[in-house]
Every structure is written in C-alpha cells, then in structure tokens.
C-alpha cells in the first residue's frame, strides 16, 4: 500500500470515529438507566416482575450480540416496514434508519449485562448497611438510592469498565447493518483497494486508543472513589 493511500485511508477511517463513539455513548447511557430498572425489578417481591427481569437478563446474556442485531434490523425492522400504516406515519424516517436499530440493539444488550453486574454488586453490600440506614429512619427506596446504590456502583466499576470496552468492540457489528462506523468504513476501503493488513492495522489502532482512554478514565474513577478501609 502506498503512503498516500495509507494516509487517505487513515483520514477516512478517523472520520468514522464520531459514529462509533455516538453509537457507544448513546447506547451505554440509555442502557445504564434501563439496567437500574431491571435490577429493581429483579429484586422485586412480585414474582411476575422478577421473572420478566430475569428472563430479559438471561436472554441478552445468553445469545450472541450479532443475533440480537440481526433480529432488530432484519427481524423487527423488517416486520415493522411490512405495515403500510407504519410507512405512512411521521416516524418512518426514524424507523427506516439503521442507526437507531444499532443503537437499540446495543442498548438492550448492555442493559442486560449491566443489570447483572449491578445486581451482583448490590448483593455484595453487607446487609448491615440496610439495617443501619433503616435505624436512621430512611425508607427502603431512600436507603437503596442514597446508601446502597452508590456503594454498589463503586463496587461495580471494574466490571463495568470491561462492559464499556465490550460495547466499543460490539459497536463494530453495526457495520453489518450498513452503518459506516470504523469497521464499516474500513470494509468499504478494503473492498476497493484489496488491502488487508494496513487497514486492519489502522482500525485496530484506533480501537486500541479508544479503549486505552476508557481504561484510564475508569482507573481514575476507581482511585478517586477508592474504599478507604483502616
């Protein structure tokens, strides 16, 4: 591969970085909120609610992300577009956009994993914490939100940083439903130039850099909120 082509490809792939980042941040932030609801549901006293949350987590952790993306775009999206009244509706522009299918597939997936991480963390908080917050006159929800959840999130930070990296890696699968993020752009250039190693090197370095920054951020957070025990 000539130097000029190498530089041009690098620039073109770098232009796709915002797409990858927006896919990841959007799905992670909505997914995190969903995960909190899922955990609340899985700790609920109602069997049906618990059952729903647990099967959700079970399904999304037990199947490959690729299937989930296909089901979203070529399954659910295909089915939606078979209905004439959906096509006539004002939402059609959004519904026909593959980007939103990728975001929702990634979001549902990360919600399942994050819920499992948070649930584990909450269960690892000693029962005594609950009891002492009750004795201070806090209600169940107050003690959950003010006492337990902050500790659980701190506890979950290392596992969650792994999940964020998994999402960055998982976002590459969006290329399969025509989204031009890093991997999609790389594939487009590859199909035109037939270069393999150079392009994978460029894309791989970008992913590594993103993940390096994420690891650094989480290390900083872990240090900042370190549990100081004497």
């Amino acid at each position: 591969m000539e130097l000029e082509l190498f530089i041009n490809s690098t620039i073109e792939i770098l232009k796709a970085v915002p797409t990858t980042l927006s896919l990841v941040t959007l799905s992670l932030s909505i997914g995190f909120i969903m995960a909190i609801f899922l955990v609340a549901m899985s700790l609920s006293k109602l069997m049906l609610v618990r059952f729903f949350a647990n099967s959700y987590i079970y399904y999304f952790r037990g199947t490959p992300l690729l299937i989930q993306i296909y089901l979203m775009y070529f399954g659910f999206g295909y089915w939606l577009s078979m209905h004439e009244n959906v096509k006539q509706s004002i939402f059609w522009d959004i519904i026909s956009e593959p980007y939103w299918y990728a975001v929702s597939a990634l979001m549902f997936n990360t919600a399942g994993y994050t819920a499992e991480i948070l649930r584990g963390a909450i269960l690892s908080i000693p029962k005594g914490q609950f009891e002492s917050s009750y004795s201070l006159g806090l209600s169940y929800y107050q003690s959950m939100i003010k006492i337990i959840l902050p500790q659980a999130i701190r506890q979950a930070l290392p596992a969650y940083s792994n999940e964020v990296i998994l999402m960055v890696k998982g976002s590459s699968l969006a290329s399969i439903i025509t989204i031009m993020e890093i991997t999609g752009t790389m594939n487009k250039i590859r199909s035109e130039t037939y270069a393999v190693y150079e392009l994978i090197f460029i894309a791989g370095s970008i992913y590594l850099l993103i993940n390096f920054v994420i690891t650094r951020i989480f290390n900083y957070l872990e240090n900042k909120y370190k549990i100081v025990s004497n």
Binding site: F74, Y78, S81, M82, K87, S96, P98, T178, M180, G184
Partner: peptide, 17 residues
C-alpha cells in the same frame, strides 16, 4: 447504504427502507 449481499439490499428495497 452499502449492503453485504444483494439479497439484503432487495429486502430493504421491497420494504421501502
């Protein structure tokens, strides 16, 4: 939009995406 196969393109063309 770049599709991997023509068949997937056909599906989206027929359903109007």
């Amino acid at each position: 939009r770049s599709y991997g196969t023509q068949e997937e393109l056909n599906i989206d063309l027929l359903n109007g995406r």
